[in-house]
């Protein structure tokens, strides 16, 4: 009996030793020499492998960043400045801070605003739908509502609102990786600066049709009237192709454009108080009058001189 036990122990031990040696040799033979910093960088990455940085995953990002001349060439939108600071520390650089970004749905074509004239019955994918026709409503630019963006989001930050038929961004979860923006065949989703304390103003429409056509298709369309651009005192708004665009780097969040927009296409979000449109309009009117008066005085002065 004892003999059997002893022999078993000896056999198993010997087998273990032999295999350990084999494993060691194999590991030595096939070892790949790698920059150890790649592993270190990968460790500090968020590990979501979302591809928001433009690389296939966190490992690929780490490889590229280690090889790159400066860590500023690549940016991990998910980890943001914190992660990039850590990456920079590993690689011995100083990272430049970037403003945090968030996905913004630039379409307000809710079922109410945008009456449906067609119904889609194919594979539920915006990409398939976009290749087939312009969409279920008179608007050929807006959200198609099949949720490609929702499927593209690896952070669960997007969901379709069944009531409006539009995607909703959960700002807490959104990392600004831009996967949704790339997935949208209509280019409805834009990455915008998150803004101070999440406050920002944007034009929630990308309809390039002329005013009347856009208005006919959707009650909340930007009609390219340009009132916002005229109102803006910060030179942040441009109108091109019948569509207004607010440059978030220049916007000072005064919300005057929002108050003046005739169709309600300009949205302000994240503000603590709702917008008092009349008060803002009154303020603008007074300012314009003052400006007019000043201009008249100027002219008068010139004439007198």
């Amino acid at each position: 009996m004892l003999k059997i036990v002893i022999w078993t122990v000896i056999t198993v031990t010997a087998l273990g030793l032999v295999l350990a040696v084999v494993l060691y040799l194999v590991a030595r033979r096939f070892k790949v020499e790698e920059d150890p910093r790649i592993d270190e960088v990968e460790k500090v990455m968020p590990g979501a492998n979302c591809g928001g940085c433009g690389f296939a995953g966190c490992r690929a990002f780490a490889e590229a960043t280690v090889k790159a001349a400066s860590p500023d060439e690549n940016f991990c939108p998910v980890g943001g400045n914190d992660v990039m600071a850590k990456v920079a520390a590993i690689l011995g650089f100083e990272a430049k801070a970037k403003a945090p970004m968030v996905a913004v749905v630039r379409c307000n074509g809710t079922c109410e605003n945008r009456p449906r004239i067609n119904e889609y019955g194919g594979y539920p994918s915006c990409k398939v739908k976009a290749a087939l026709y312009s969409g279920d409503t008179g608007c050929a630019f807006g959200c198609l509502g099949c949720g490609d963006c929702v499927a593209a989001c690896s952070f669960g930050a997007l969901s379709m609102d069944p009531e409006t038929g539009l995607p909703v961004v959960d700002e807490e979860k959104c990392t600004g990786c831009g996967a949704c923006s790339k997935a949208c065949p209509k280019g409805v989703i834009e990455l915008r600066g998150k803004g101070p304390r999440g406050m920002r103003v944007y034009v929630s429409c990308i309809n390039k049709d002329k005013g009347p056509a856009a208005k006919k298709a959707c009650a909340a369309a930007c009609i390219g009237c340009g009132i916002c651009a005229k109102t803006c005192t910060h030179d942040a708004i441009t109108v091109a192709d019948n569509i207004a665009y607010i440059d978030f780097a220049k916007c000072k969040l005064c919300r005057e454009c929002e108050a003046m927009c005739p169709t309600g296409a300009i949205h302000g979000v994240g503000f603590p108080k709702p917008l008092d449109k009349d008060a803002v309009k009154e303020r603008i009117r007074k300012r314009n009058e003052a400006a007019k008066a000043a201009a008249a005085a100027e002219v008068k002065k010139e004439v007198e001189a």
């Binding site: 004239i117 067609n118 019955g121 594979y123 087939l132 026709y133 279920d136």
Partner: peptide
């Protein structure tokens, strides 16, 4: 009512 649209 609404026209149904599907790919072929």
């Amino acid at each position: 009512g609404k026209l149904l649209v599907t790919p072929s």
